[in-house]
């Protein structure tokens, strides 16, 4: 038995879940990650590479992969030994100009067959900024209602205040767990 099969087994045994945190640059991915990790959010610079963070959520062990906005890291979406269970797509709700870009990127992303079956949580971030679009608007702009290939939900949130992060995570973790850890 080699390392790769050990990893696969441990993943099932420890009830691990793998979630990719993605979005356009400056959407606030790293801020959300720092918030989740309980770290200071006073200094954030563009993420260069990728960071894996593991956090316990109830009985599950959630691995967050913050891979930055870089396309070159895409091969890691599907790891050799763990598949992607969920995607957190972070949207800068105040950046109305790039909303079209954002929708296109998301649509292209969901076509990846390596992400088939992954649950999708859209965070409409930066609600603390005046004039930010609400989750209903963003839902329409991203055409989420037309999405049939993935389970999805959208939550308006603010990484700075921490509002609504927990309900979003709760949804995605339990949505994933309900089908991959149904009986364990």
């Amino acid at each position: 038995m080699g390392l790769l099969s050990i990893i696969r087994k441990l993943r099932a045994k420890e009830k691990e879940i793998r979630i990719l945190v993605l979005g356009l640059d400056n959407a606030g991915k790293t801020t959300i990650m720092k918030r989740l990790n309980g770290e200071s959010i006073s200094t954030i610079s563009p993420t260069l590479g990728f960071n894996i963070t593991t956090l316990d959520f109830d009985s599950y062990k959630v691995n967050f992969w913050d891979v930055g906005g870089q396309r070159t890291i895409r091969p890691y979406w599907r790891n050799y030994f763990e598949k992607t269970d969920g995607i957190i797509w972070v949207v800068d709700s105040a950046d109305k100009e790039r909303m079209k870009d954002c929708a296109d990127e998301l649509a292209a992303l969901l076509k990846e067959d390596k992400l088939a079956g992954a649950s999708l949580l859209v965070f409409a971030n930066k609600q603390d900024i005046a004039g930010a679009l609400g989750d209903e608007d963003i839902k329409n702009l991203l055409k989420l209602n037309e999405l049939t290939t993935h389970h999805w939900t959208i939550k308006a949130c603010s990484a700075v205040t921490g509002d609504n992060l927990l309900p979003g995570l709760q949804w995605i973790v339990y949505d994933i767990a309900s089908h991959i850890y149904m009986f364990s």
Partner: peptide, 14 residues
């Protein structure tokens, strides 16, 4: 040992 998501999030003083 391991940081818990719930604890971290509930902990957020602005």
């Amino acid at each position: 040992a391991r940081p818990s998501l719930r604890t971290n999030l509930n902990d957020n003083g602005i």
